Simulated assay, not measured.
Amino acid sequence: MADNKNQVANAAKKGNGNGKGHQDNDKPRESFKDRKLRLAADKDYNVISQRTTDNAEYINLLNATDYLMYRLRMVNFDRHPTLTIDDLARFLKRNNEIREDINQFNIELAKAVGQNYTPPRGYTAKPLEQSKADTKQPESSPQEMPAATA
């Protein structure tokens, strides 16, 4: 019995705080900076420059949105769905609208500060009102269709 108590005590000293011990505790703990650098090399990660404090909030919101959209697409539509396809479509549409709003905000902001803005692939650099005007078809007088021949 005494040997068992000594083993538990030694495991608690070596362990991760739960009294059970852990094999990986012999390795030095990875620093915050080292972990960030290691993750930056991963293909699922992007490094984002943050020049203002409020952009840290944007980054945190974006990370949360990324994770939740992943959960929406991958997890909720398995064998036991909790959401419908209509829910998925609604969330995807709203997500796209928010991203387009941010693109439009960047266009306005760049114009206000006199900077060039190149949007990400798939977005236009034209203000939304200008884009809609460019895509309108010119109105023309209706023409008669030739009669179909048999």
Rank of each mutant, 00 (worst) to 15 (best):
1 M>K: 12
2 A>N: 11
3 D>P: 01
3 D>K: 08
3 D>R: 09
3 D>E: 08
6 N>F: 12
8 V>Q: 10
8 V>S: 05
8 V>I: 10
11 A>Y: 02
12 A>T: 14
13 K>Q: 11
14 K>Q: 13
16 N>L: 07
16 N>D: 14
18 N>G: 05
18 N>K: 13
19 G>Y: 00
21 G>P: 09
22 H>G: 06
23 Q>E: 11
23 Q>N: 07
23 Q>P: 06
24 D>N: 12
26 D>V: 15
27 K>F: 11
28 P>E: 13
29 R>D: 13
30 E>Y: 02
30 E>W: 06
31 S>P: 01
31 S>E: 00
32 F>D: 12
33 K>Y: 12
33 K>E: 15
34 D>F: 00
34 D>L: 03
35 R>E: 09
35 R>Y: 03
35 R>M: 07
37 L>A: 04
38 R>G: 03
38 R>N: 09
40 A>N: 09
41 A>F: 01
41 A>H: 11
42 D>L: 02
42 D>S: 08
42 D>M: 03
44 D>P: 00
45 Y>A: 04
46 N>V: 14
47 V>Y: 00
49 S>Q: 07
49 S>P: 04
50 Q>W: 01
51 R>T: 05
52 T>Q: 12
55 N>D: 11
58 Y>E: 08
58 Y>Q: 12
58 Y>C: 14
59 I>D: 00
62 L>E: 08
63 N>R: 09
63 N>Y: 02
64 A>K: 13
67 Y>Q: 07
68 L>Q: 14
73 R>K: 15
73 R>I: 10
74 M>L: 04
76 N>P: 00
76 N>S: 10
76 N>W: 07
76 N>R: 08
79 R>K: 11
80 H>S: 06
80 H>F: 12
81 P>W: 04
81 P>K: 05
82 T>G: 15
83 L>T: 02
86 D>S: 13
91 F>A: 15
91 F>S: 06
93 K>D: 12
94 R>S: 09
94 R>T: 09
94 R>D: 08
95 N>L: 04
95 N>H: 14
97 E>K: 07
98 I>M: 14
100 E>D: 13
100 E>Y: 08
101 D>G: 11
102 I>Y: 12
106 N>Y: 08
111 K>I: 04
112 A>W: 00
113 V>N: 03
113 V>L: 03
114 G>R: 08
114 G>M: 05
116 N>P: 02
116 N>V: 03
116 N>Q: 10
119 P>A: 03
119 P>K: 03
120 P>Q: 04
120 P>F: 03
121 R>T: 13
121 R>D: 15
121 R>C: 01
124 T>H: 10
125 A>E: 12
126 K>F: 05
131 S>N: 05
134 D>Q: 10
134 D>L: 09
135 T>H: 12
137 Q>P: 02
137 Q>I: 10
138 P>F: 01
138 P>W: 00
138 P>A: 14
139 E>N: 06
139 E>T: 13
139 E>S: 14
140 S>M: 04
142 P>K: 14
142 P>G: 05
142 P>H: 06
144 E>Y: 05
144 E>G: 05
144 E>C: 00
144 E>M: 07
144 E>W: 05
145 M>E: 11
147 A>Y: 03
147 A>H: 04
148 A>R: 11
149 T>S: 09
